[in-house]
Write a protein that binds this DNA or RNA. Structure first.
Lengths: 201, 201
DNA sequence: CGTCTATTTGAATGTACTCAAAAGCGGTGG
DNA sequence: CCACCGCTTTTGAGTACATTCAAATAGACG
């Protein structure tokens, strides 16, 4: 359990690293004022399907997932968010429309939240923040594109190996049910894939 | 075949609509200077795998595709770009690293290209352009997320119906081979899906 | 310890793929 | 105008990969 000073320090460090430049105190003070700390306990929701996403969150500590439930009742995890990742439904947040997604905590998580009004204000007052957002958007888009690349051309086993390579920490941290859901396969299939991969090459 | 004035007029109209505000002449003059017209004939490449993507392009007229070739030699189309869309490999362009993708013209296409240096200059000099880019990034990310959503939870038929709904113009404009590749299925499967959908509901 | 959930294993099924061949379509040249 | 060529689309039969359903085993947590 972190105190608020530690949480804001985490955000500051993140921004500084991200923009690869000094972050002036006066800018960070504005940023600090705009973000509110929030504790989300395991299995609690930050967002539920049908709600409008009012916040974008920076994960200081913990692990969240964003998922949706399809017509057959199957859960599909779209993304995980762990320390130093951002969480929220971009579409719902920007357009202020109901979300198709649920976001909940896989572990007790400590977030810093900002709402759309405050974020738009920061866009005008804190150039460092704008730069950071630009870079995040770029990175998010590239990550999304890689995911599309993987999902349209890889088999279940290849997607697993790709994840093993790109985000090995996920495999240690999350249950196989969660990993399977993220990979777009069934837990039984993931189990078989792992067995096959362990015995063979 | 358009003259250059018509091409720049197309870009100006696009930006104006996108930012939902007036675009000052002095800003547009800067933008105009930064973009170079380029004609790409059918089947010609704008980018080939292994090259660094030096340009981002605005499609004034025509149709382009971005695709990659997997280990088995199968082509997978990541995205199409038609009139008023942007084309380029974002990752390669931003990081100036070799691209995994090919971009070629499905029809004779007229583009306006900008390189990274000029784009970064525009970022400083043309606020309208920055705003437009912000909105494009957001939109691209949301579109990518939808594609992930579809590819991890929909069957071949559902993906086809989703495309039929979201981009019906693609189906009129591109061959079934192209559509199949975009959907991540084989042409034979698409043919069967269409037959099934035509006879049944 | 007992309960609940996660993971593994097995057998049958289904969806999409591969390979092969036929049919359709568009453009070119005789 | 028709014959031919190349390319796309369709159709068929067999196959592979992943799913479903069911049951057994293993782990986690109170």
């Amino acid at each position: 359990m972190l105190n608020t000073a530690q949480m804001y320090a985490g955000l500051r460090q993140y921004i500084t690293r991200y923009i690869e430049a000094q972050l002036p105190d006066e800018e960070f003070n504005l940023i600090e004022k705009a973000f509110q700390p929030k504790l989300v306990r395991k299995k609690q929701y930050l967002l539920q399907e049908g709600e409008i996403c009012r916040f974008t969150g920076f994960v200081v500590k913990g692990a969240m997932r964003q998922y949706f439930v399809d017509a057959k009742g199957n859960e599909h995890i779209l993304r995980f968010a762990i320390e130093n990742w951002w969480v929220g439904d971009r579409e719902s947040f920007s357009h202020q429309t109901p979300s198709k997604y649920n976001i909940d905590a896989l572990e007790e998580s400590e977030l810093l939240l900002i709402n759309l009004t405050d974020l738009n204000e920061l866009r005008h007052k804190a150039p460092s923040f704008v730069l950071m957002m630009q870079k995040i958007d770029e990175r998010s888009f590239i990550a999304a594109q890689k995911r599309i690349h993987a999902s349209i051309s890889y088999t279940a086993e290849e997607r697993y190996l790709d994840l093993l390579n790109s985000n090995p920490e996920f495999l240690k941290r999350f249950s196989q049910n969660m990993i399977a859901s993220y990979l777009g396969i069934k837990p039984e299939t993931l189990s078989r894939v792992r067995k096959h991969h362990a015995t063979n090459g």
